[in-house]
């Protein structure tokens, strides 16, 4: 029988937990948060959380005849959830028709820095992190977000370890958290390269067991491929 560590869905949203995992022991936000992959993961966290809270539902639909089906998402309940980041995403989706998840991921990624800021503010308001601002050389402002008692962060890490190493079946929340933490680079914050390599088959097996999260993973992979191609083209033009 599995441990009961991973039995309950935590009282913290996916976006908050993803942001929390991106904060290191010194309260410094990981540089990965400025990557497009993290921004898209933040959007994905909001989309899945809205599904978990009964505001959105999703299904697979054949959008282009003959092509593989894509996940589309639509609003089933427009009432706000009371979390600014989630309510922003909900209002955007409510104003549109049923739309592929991939399109939302690309469309909302420009709002990711604001969504991250809203999530950090909410973590502060809930007493989970603090905000420390310092001036460097009297001009440059540095921000740190030290974790206050660390319980939420510790629990998130323990749940992830319990699933990846202890063989627990993940909850829908944890399965998506592991997937988004992996694709955004946050998982590399607390697992070494070797550990990640060893855990890769298990991560692939249990992460993002959800059609919305799988689609966000796909969009992130596609974005990384496109950037790599653009870089290769630019390098070729430079050398040529």
């Amino acid at each position: 029988m599995a441990s009961n560590l991973t039995d309950k869905t935590p009282d913290i949203s996916l976006i908050e937990e993803l942001c929390l995992l991106a904060i290191d022991d010194n309260g410094v936000i990981s540089p990965v948060t400025s990557d497009a992959a993290f921004g898209m993961s933040i959007v994905g966290a909001c989309l899945v959380e809205l599904c978990l809270r009964g505001r959105l539902d999703a299904e697979l639909r054949e959008i282009v005849p003959g092509a593989p089906p894509r996940a589309v998402v639509w609003v089933i309940d427009r009432s706000p959830v009371g979390e600014p980041a989630l309510d922003y995403v909900l209002s955007e989706i409510a104003a549109a028709d049923v739309t592929p998840v991939v399109d939302w991921t690309y469309r909302l990624v420009s709002a990711a820095p604001n969504l991250l800021g809203m999530a950090l503010q909410r973590l502060q308001a809930r007493g989970i992190i603090a905000l420390q601002e310092k001036l460097i050389l009297w001009v440059l402002k540095s921000r740190r977000y030290p974790v206050i008692d660390g319980r939420e962060l510790r629990e998130a890490k323990l749940r992830i370890v319990d699933i990846l190493i202890g063989n627990s079946v993940p909850t829908p929340h944890d399965s998506v958290l592991i997937g988004l933490a992996q694709t955004s680079g946050v998982l590399a914050q607390f697992f070494s390269e070797g550990e990640l390599r060893r855990l890769r088959p298990k991560i692939d097996e249990v992460s993002s067991l959800d059609i919305v999260a799988k689609e966000v993973d796909w969009a992130i992979g596609d974005e990384i491929r496109r950037r790599a191609q653009a870089l290769a083209l630019a390098a070729g033009a430079y050398i040529g």
Partner: peptide
């Protein structure tokens, strides 16, 4: 005949509960 993302979560939640309770 049809499963949406909410239906998939039902299956995952059941599987989790089944494992936890033996």
């Amino acid at each position: 005949s049809y499963v949406s993302s909410a239906g998939l979560r039902t299956l995952l939640t059941l599987a989790k509960s089944a494992q936890t309770s033996g």
